[in-house]
Structure formats: C-alpha cells, structure tokens
Nucleic acid binder design. Structure first.
Lengths: 337, 337
DNA sequence: CCGGAAAATGGGAACGTTCCACCCGTGGAT
DNA sequence: ATCCACGGGTGGAACGTTCCCATTTTCCGG
C-alpha cells in the first residue's frame, strides 16, 4: 500500500491552465518571466488541483536538497535537546531543513556509522555532529565528503571545524569558585576522556586547578549517573570532604538526590557544583551552582559556520571557542568544618 | 556554490565493475538475483568509488520517501522534546525517517500553514501533529491529503486519529488527591480552552471535581508562566487557600520559584500540584506531586497507528486515550490551617 | 547431446522537475 | 522597410534510480 492517490504534477496544472509545463515551472519556481494573465491562470489551476511542488524531483535535477544532517547521539538529554532545537531554528532561518539521525542508545560504532551513511543517502548538503562520544576517526571520512561542523565539543582534527565552549575555562572557573569559598578538600566526579570528549577535559581541568590552588582532591570515577549512590557512599566515607564537583548538571542532580535520601544538607554539609546550564527548569528552583554553556549560541554559530562553508567561504576559525559563564546558585557556600 | 564534487552514480559503479547499471541497481537495492562473483565485483567497485545510494532519485521513482513529517509548535519545551525523541526512535524502528517542521515562536497561523506545506513538498508519507494550540481547522486539509495522527491531545474531528492521555482523568485524580488530604480551599491556575486544547480541559476538570467534592475553588487565570509572580500575589491574598493546582509541571515549577522568593514553605504553608511528568530531571529532586503522562507511550502509539494507516489498515480506534498515573511527591500534604 | 526452465544480465522507459535552445510576435531604432 | 532585442511561450534533455521486458547463459533431466 502506501501508494496514495497520485499527487498532481506540473503537467496536470499545465493542461488545466492550457499552457506548457515550462510556464508552470517558471511560475511555481519564480524564475523566468511569465505574462500576468497567464500567471494568474496557472496559479488558479494549481489551487484547484491542490498542486504542491515536489521537492524530491526538484532536488534531483537541481542537485541540491537544502538539507543539513544532524547527528546526535542521544536527543533525549536536555543538553542535546536544546542544541537540536537551536540548530533547527537557525537552519530554518537560512532556508535549510534539518534531518536528524540518532545513534543507538547502546554505544555501537557500526550503528552510528550507518546513521551517518543514511544522511549521505539523503544527500544532505552538510553535517553537524553533536556527540561527546563519537570518535573523530569515525567522522573524518564523512567530513572529507561533506562540509562538517562538530558542535558542542572541541575537535582537533584538521578537516573538521568545531564550535564549542572551552572546557578548561569552565572547569577552572568552578574550581576557583570552590577554593575561593574556602574549601580545601574537594571531591571531583571524574569521567575518563575516553568516555566523553567534553566531560573528560572539564573534570580534569577542575582537578588540576584545585590542586594548583592547594586543595586536596579526591577523584571519584563515575561516568554513569545511575552510580550516584556509589559516589555518595564513597564521598561520605571521607568526612574531610566539604565540596563535590560533578561533570554535568544531570550528574549533579542525581548526586543531590542521593544526598537528600541520606539527609545530607546542601550547602551546609556539602557544597555541590554542576556543569552545562540546561534550561531554566532546574536551575532557579534548585539553585545549582554551575558553569553555563551558551547552548543556543553554540547552535547558531554551528549553523552559521556551515552556511558559510556551503557558500564556499572559509570559516573565520577552525575552532570557535565560546565563553560560558559562572552561575552561582545556592548549592555552594563556605565550608562549615 | 554548494555544488560539490559530483557524487558517483550507479553508472560509474557499473562501468568500473564492467556490468550494466541494472545489475548494480539490483545489488545495492537487494532485489532481483545477481551472480555471486558479479555481486562481489560490484560491491568492490562501489566501495572504491565511495558510492552511496541516492535516496532522492530512489524516492522519485518509487513514489515513496519513507519519511513522516512531524509538526511541533515549540520543540524547546521538555514535553515536546521528549515526545519528539520518542517519535523519532519509534519511526526509525519501523524504517521511517522523521522530518520536523516547527511553527514560529509567535503564534502565526500563516506560518504554521507554511510549515505544514513544506512537509507536503517534501512528500512525507504521513503527518504527526504535536501542538496543543494549532486548531483542527488548520489540520483538516492536510489530514485529507495524508494519513494524520494528532499526538498528545484529543481531537474530535472525524478524519483525524488522535493519541492522547485523558485530561479529565488526570485532572480529577489530582483534585481527589488534594481533597483527600483535607484541603477545602483550593486555587486552580486555569488556562482558557481557546488557549490550549490540553491545559484548558485539564484545569476545568480539576475545578469541577474539586467543587463536586465540596471544596471552594479560586480560579486564577494564567496562561503564561512569566506571570507566576502575579498568581502568587493574588493567591497569597487569600489566606484560606491551602493548595494550588497548576496546569503543567512547568507552571508549577515557576510558581514554586515565586513561593521560594516569598518564603512560603511547601507543603507546610501551601500544597502544590503539577501535570505532565516531564522527565526524571525535576521530579525526584523537587518531588513535585503531579499527574504523569506516558510520553514515550504516546509517541510510540502515534507512530504505530500511523504505520498501520500507511499499510492501509484501519486504526483500532480513532481516539486512543491512554492512562496516566498519579505521582505523589513532597509538595502536597494535609493542610496545617 | 538436446530441450527447456531458471538464473543472470542488459536496455530502455518512467518518475517530476529545471534548464536550455529555440520560436514567434511586437515595436523601436536604423 | 529591415534588423534586432525582448517579452512570452514551447519542447526536449537531463538528473539517478527502479522496474519491466528481452536476451543470453547456465544447468539439469531425459
């Protein structure tokens, strides 16, 4: 099935209006000149028949789809959800459509490769990759084929342009904030770089700066948020710890839940920091101290850069590092012990 | 520009493999029989040339795009973000791709019409409309053209199938919960039906059930979350009010923020309820009492129904009302006065 | 060793546009 | 009167597939 009533074509309209298909094409595509009277007849005929241009046929002959492909590993997370929306809107304002391909929930390289391949099949004109995980090696073959921008994380490979928020800066700023408050024994929930190109460097930066400033650091390895209970147990075993730095807002929230269950008061007993700045949803009410990434800006810049590449221009910079900002909430305070 | 190096075609592959284009077509599309040795040669040639099937050309001749169009008014809200993700994943599991069209931020009917028209241009095979606002009259002309499912809200128009979560049930259940706790003076932040097909009925149901159960109801009209300060001022002017019911989780959170600013303790001074169940992000930590809609299930059902329609079957039901569930958190308690 | 079915291959039309080359009047400049 | 430019119009090729039909090759039983 699924072969519905055939859509009217340019030829049907031409017949009804008593002109050739060329004229109809010129009317609907807006290029070339057509007599006023004829134009009106064509428009009427199109209206009567319910004619709508077929973008598929148009794309085929024009060799252009006005579509950019977005690969996002997990659109369900708020960070990527926001980013996706920003990309979509900005692309639309440039006259491009967005097709999204998602990797599988499980981390399967083959699967992600297939998702990217699908985008190529669809003849997207450019690629935006949003994934803190997909390794550069996977992206390069596609980047050689299509203009590609990696959004939300730095990417050092030569042929790829990336738009991101400097992780060092954020990690260091948060660490400074914590040390400035007077904390000397801090736990950092670290994520191996091999696990996330974003969270790895940022937690590394936190730990480094903490140490530079003379604080003692307890590193708790914790990529998965489900392990928050484990972090809590381990951290609370060290009573000297007065502050905990999480690799993301979501990690921080998961950890806060655990503290709530254990009746640990925040920020009296323990200060907690996050990272990302996902939405106004959590922040104001919970008042999480965090480093805010300008998600919308990242999305806009990524699309703008891509459009420039599509127009044959060189992007101003291969690595566009944007600045975030420190948001001081109510989950951090001077230590009480 | 934007006319990059031409992609290799089936013919290039055929030449290199020393066969006709028909053979290549059969190999890459998997239909028809090809000799083992030949198949290998073709595959090798394709690999060498970096050939990837052109879905545009394929769609043109097959009259199928394997694409469904999703119209969502504002993808940035968590509710629709979740729904979108669910739709995307379910569609993928059926072999369909998803193209999203977004209405403008401002409420402009013309704009939304154009967004839907774009989807028709792209020859999506079916339509999923996610919008608590777009009126049925706007949808009908498209629904007559393409199989259409409205997701997330009831739709009474005959030719449209809808998958939603019964608003009456949720509103009533929440009202029962509040009355059962002993509240007798309750404020409901209502939304006019003209403003939202979902929030209107649900707040109406809340108010009705409250009255049926003998409670006094103060209706505060408040479609926009930015007005939360106003609601707080008005409600706090009525000291007899001990509970407040919001039309959505986001409204509830905005209201909670205001209460926090005014040092009103929840649930001691005031009980608060939400509606939607957006993500595990807010709920566990804030512990908002709310009616949970099965967002993923709505998405899955919507896609499944659409696929059935595409296969020429009749959907089991024009209006698929799903059940939500009451989530009792820590923002509601018996009144203390 | 032959007939014939089955498997493998090739050629061409079709899909719905756009674009190009061309044609036909009309009217102003030469 | 002739020429040319130009607005307005026509028909056909091309885009990259798939599918149908014709043709060739293979293989098997008699």
């Amino acid at each position: 099935m699924a072969e519905r009533h055939r859509n009217p074509t340019i030829i049907d309209v031409a017949e009804r209006a008593g002109v050739s298909k060329s004229v109809v094409s010129r009317v609907v595509s807006g290029r070339g000149s057509v007599g006023e009277e004829t134009r009106r007849r064509v428009l009427d005929a199109a209206q009567d028949l319910g004619y709508v241009v077929n973008a598929v046929a148009r794309a085929m002959v024009a060799h252009r789809t006005y579509t950019v492909g977005v690969f996002v590993r997990d659109a369900a997370t708020p960070f990527y959800g926001h980013l996706l929306t920003a990309l979509q809107e900005r692309a639309a304002s440039h006259g491009y459509r967005v097709v999204t391909a998602t990797g599988s929930g499980r981390f399967a390289v083959a699967d992600e490769h297939r998702a990217l391949e699908t985008l190529v099949m669809l003849r997207v004109e450019a690629l935006i990759v949003c994934s803190g995980i997909l390794p550069a090696a996977q992206i390069v073959p596609f980047a050689e084929r299509l203009p590609t921008v990696v959004a939300g994380r730095p990417e050092t490979h030569g042929s790829i342009t990336s738009v991101f928020c400097d992780e060092e800066e954020g990690g260091a700023a948060l660490a400074d904030h914590v040390v400035d408050l007077g904390h000397r024994n801090v736990a950092v929930i670290t994520v191996p770089v091999s696990n996330s190109v974003t969270m790895g460097p940022r937690t590394a930066a936190m730990a480094r700066r903490l140490r530079e400033r003379g604080a003692r650091v307890l590193e708790v390895v914790g990529p998965h948020r489900e392990m928050a209970g484990g972090w809590a147990t381990e951290i609370l075993r060290h009573p000297e710890i007065t502050a905990v730095m999480a690799p993301s807002d979501r990690h921080a929230v998961a950890f806060l839940e655990q503290l709530q269950l254990r009746n640990v008061a925040v920020p009296q007993d323990l200060s907690v920091t996050g990272y990302d700045g996902i939405g106004d949803l959590v922040s104001p009410l919970i008042g999480l101290t965090h480093w805010r990434q300008p998600i919308e800006l990242i999305g806009e810049r990524a699309v703008d850069t891509l459009v420039r590449l599509l127009d044959g221009e060189q992007p101003p910079d291969h690595h566009q590092a944007l600045s975030g900002s420190l948001v001081v909430g109510r989950t951090t305070a001077p230590p009480t012990r």
